[in-house]
Nucleic acid binder design. Structure first.
Length: 137
RNA sequence: CCAGUCGGCCGGACGGCCGCUCCUUGGCCUGUGACUUCGGUUGCGGGACAAGGGGAGGAAAGUCCGGGCUCCAUGGAAACACGGUGCCGGGCAAUGCCCGGCGGGGAUAUCGGGUUGGCCCGGCGUCCUUAGGGAAAGUGCCACAGAAAGCAGACCGCCUCCGGUUCGUCCGGCGGUAAGGAUGAAAGGGUGGGGUAAGAGCCCACCGCGGCCGCAGCAAUGCGGUCGGCACGGCAAACCCCACCGGGAGCAAGACCAAGAAGGGGUAGCGCGGCGUUUCGGCGCCAGCCGGUUUCCAGGCCAGCCGCCCGGGUCGGUCGCGAGAAGCGGUCCGCAAGGACCGCUCCAGAUGAAUGGCCGUCACGCCGGGUCUUCGGGCCCGGUGCUACAGAACCCGGCUUACAGGCCGGCUGGCGUU
């Protein structure tokens, strides 16, 4: 799973579609408007000092979001930024994954997810959890 | 056994599935260079894969001290300024840290003395605590309260004498007095006795204090003797004085590659000091500049200004970057901190920032119920928490602060047993 390393990418994603969930806020941007870019989705994570005072909690929020993102990860051609919220520490992991799937559908659209499937952009081996997620969409 | 206190140590375990990062090895794909008998061989990289191995802490934290390392145009000496430290000895690379000792303060057990008693004083022991140079170098401050607070001070009280007197245990006055009361953080030695009108180091004993001498100790200091009737209050975490230490900034240091706003590069002009000398390269003297200021010594430097043109909005990559004042074990030296020697080990290196996510079992804590009980608690079942403080960012040595629960040891007190 590739992730965003440039401030520019984060600022661009902030101007895109937004979905608010209990444990996070998802920002999404299609990298190429013409749909030519079908590369795998890239993720970025933001957890500010304001959401968690100490570094241990910030790390844990980011790691749980990262693990959830790895289990979903369709949405080819998009840059996705997850802004952690405090509830990410306590929400059950299953709920976290489910919320992330609906949020991706909301911001990227179902057809985008379909493109990702048909394009065979999946980099990992097929995984039951993600297969189920795609059937739901 | 329990409680308190001080010191040290640990800070969940095992397993399953799925991931991250670094290193090593292996073959595969690939870029490029050299050689080539055109089959290949080989150097330097890159990518995915497989196997094996490493992968957060005791504080990684606060960034309070001390170093290593890097740069700042340079090193040394002295003075000044600024900052820091402050009993003595030892340890350490070094320190404001650590260890041991000394002095001061507090608590406590016991012994001796005093006291009507509460209690006070002294000896010996244990534990805790302590930024602890100088107050007869100078300046300053000592609020409030109190009569009086710095060349002490008569408010109450006590006492002699004088006068009055209603003859009272009274009133007034000249004086004496710091033993008592009251105030305070602090009232110009303490306790006891003598003494006195009452008192007072006025005199005496012991203790304390100061000077001198001797002894012990590396020293801080201690002990003893002698002299002094006691003067010299406290604050230096007030200025200050003395001694010692200290250049500044920090890995976003700094170096290289790419790019090229800025810096820069090209080109033209001005400047490139003065004097002497010259074989025209230079050399000598004077002047100017070189890490807070000044001076000196050695050494070094000629560093600048500005017009036009080129260029067109970066913030990427590599190194620094982990074999070290390293860890573990043993022997010896030392009261200890620590040191010497021997052997073994290699042990995180991320950079929008890895070291994890999820689940199960056990342990642990909490809640509820049942049961047993020697009433301290133990056992079983269910639920719940999923755990304290907390995440490396150049690296070490300390300090400080935070911390669920547990283990070990010292001391003190209580209870029980022999």
């Amino acid at each position: 799973m590739e992730h965003l390393k440039k401030r520019r990418d984060y600022l661009a994603a902030a101007r895109g579609a937004k979905a608010v969930r209990k444990a996070f806020i998802l920002q999404s941007r299609k990298r190429d408007d013409t749909g030519g870019d079908t590369g795998p989705a890239r993720f970025g994570f933001t957890v500010t000092r304001r959401t968690a005072r100490n570094a241990v909690d910030r790390n844990r929020i980011r790691r749980r979001l990262k693990a959830a993102a790895r289990l979903t990860a369709p949405a080819a051609g998009h840059d996705l930024v997850l802004i952690g919220r405090r509830a990410a520490l306590s929400v059950p992991f299953g709920d976290l994954v489910a919320d992330l799937e609906t949020a991706i559908v909301e911001t990227c659209g179902a057809e985008t997810g379909g493109d990702a499937k048909s394009g065979g952009r999946v980099m990992d081996n097929a995984d039951d959890a993600r297969g189920a997620a795609r059937r739901q969409t």
